[in-house]
Design a binder for these strands. Structure first.
Lengths: 139, 139
DNA sequence: CGATATTCCTATTATTCCGATAGGAATTGG
DNA sequence: CCAATTCCTATCGGAATAATAGGAATATCG
């Protein structure tokens, strides 16, 4: 459950890479992070549309972070690649619930969404790329 | 993202139903909850294998909760239908990570798993089926 | 100016998972 | 015995995901 799509995993890996390397081309990132190059291109484009990275075309072009890494929250990355967190459809819109007013679990799902949103909002790219998180990550 | 499979949604609806109705057949539950009957059969069987419900076969058989509703945590239900919460494979097993020791995001995913697990562990079936949650659920 | 490295755009394919269906065997109460 | 039920296994269709392919647009550098 809650398997995170590779698209999002790739996006995060690419961003950590950019946080550490300043600027790089899609092909270079893909090689370093072992991601299908063409697939990564599309992902980086989504991140660009979301205002998370910027790009320069042409020779010696490439991608870089659009903001400092502590301004990039993980929830922004997830939303850029996958859209809003929505465990069940009726979380956003009660009217779509087949059970209508008798949908008892709805509050429960809203609570789950909140728990996930809160966590993703609390972690920034800096937390992942910075020393602190790397230290914690060691075993 | 984090779309919860209908299987799990159905399981929870069925359990709420049983918490309120004491005992019922798969067909009856399916009708009341608007779930495909045959599909629900399989789900109830999974819940039985997980020790969440019991069943009686034969005429006038059916399903009932195996424990009191406050002893049934939502995380048990989710695990019964979907297995463990595992946002990415390496959460359980570092060795499967293609990035090996350089997998910086792993700690982040473990944090996400923890956030979800904690929430699901904190809510019981009684919270959903009982008066409290219903009151809260009203708008 | 021309070659090259890049982003950008669109379409297509492959694969996997999910939801549902189907048919029937086993069981049990009346 | 009959009818209602759980239980078991196989299969199918569709949607979403992952990846691939080809090339157009753009910019740099010699």
């Amino acid at each position: 459950m809650f398997q995170v799509p590779t698209k999002t995993q790739y996006a995060i890996r690419a961003l950590v890479h950019l946080a550490l390397k300043e600027s790089d081309s899609a092909a270079k990132i893909a090689e370093a992070q072992m991601i299908s190059p063409k697939y990564l291109e599309g992902i980086l484009n989504q991140l660009k549309l979301a205002g998370i990275v910027t790009s320069d075309r042409g020779r010696s072009g490439g991608y870089r972070l659009a903001k400092s890494s502590e301004q990039i929250r993980m929830i922004d990355v997830v939303q850029a690649t996958e859209g809003a967190i929505r465990p069940v459809d009726c979380v956003d819109n009660r009217s779509v619930c087949v059970m209508g007013a008798t949908c008892i679990p709805r509050k429960f799902w809203i609570g789950l969404k909140t728990a996930v949103d809160d966590y993703l909002s609390s972690v920034t790219l800096k937390d992942l790329a910075g020393d602190t998180f790397v230290q914690i990550g060691k075993e």
